[in-house]
Computed example of a mutant assay.
Amino acid sequence: MADRRRASVEVAPAPRALPTRFLTPDDLVEMFELPSVETVYQWRRKRTGPRGFRVGRHLRFDPDDVRAWVESQIKGAAA
């Protein structure tokens, strides 16, 4: 009987791991289900999003910086 109860407990899905490569604005759009890439560029202009850097004319994001930014957003929402 205890086994039946245990089987009915729903488990939240494990968070997906971020890729180990540098992320593109399109990656952030997909990850956060944003309306467009323009949202990522607005974050950058307003300095509200994850820290990014340029490689030539291309914008890239370090997965560790994105993770830190997400954690800061979660902590800010909990306060």
Rank of each mutant, 00 (worst) to 15 (best):
F22Q: 06
D3G: 08
T24K: 03
L59A: 07
G76C: 03
R21G: 05
R16Y: 04
A7P: 01
F32L: 14
V40M: 02
P35H: 13
R54Q: 13
V66I: 05
P15D: 08
E10F: 12
R4V: 10
R16H: 08
R67K: 07
A77L: 14
S8F: 08
G52K: 02
L28F: 01
Q42L: 15
R4T: 06
S8I: 11
P13G: 08
T20R: 15
S72F: 03
D64S: 12
G56P: 04
P50C: 00
E10H: 12
F53I: 03
R4M: 13
M31V: 05
S72V: 01
A79V: 10
V55T: 08
R60H: 09
Q42V: 12
L34Y: 08
P15Q: 09
T39M: 02
M1I: 09
D65A: 13
R16A: 14
L18A: 05
P50S: 00
W69C: 01
S8N: 12
M31Q: 11
S72H: 05
M31I: 15
L23M: 15
E33G: 13
T24H: 02
K46P: 00
L59N: 07
G76I: 00
E10A: 15
A79R: 13
G76L: 04
A77G: 04
R5F: 11
T20S: 15
H58C: 09
K75A: 14
G52A: 11
W69F: 03
E10L: 15
E71F: 08
F22V: 15
E33S: 14
A79Q: 12
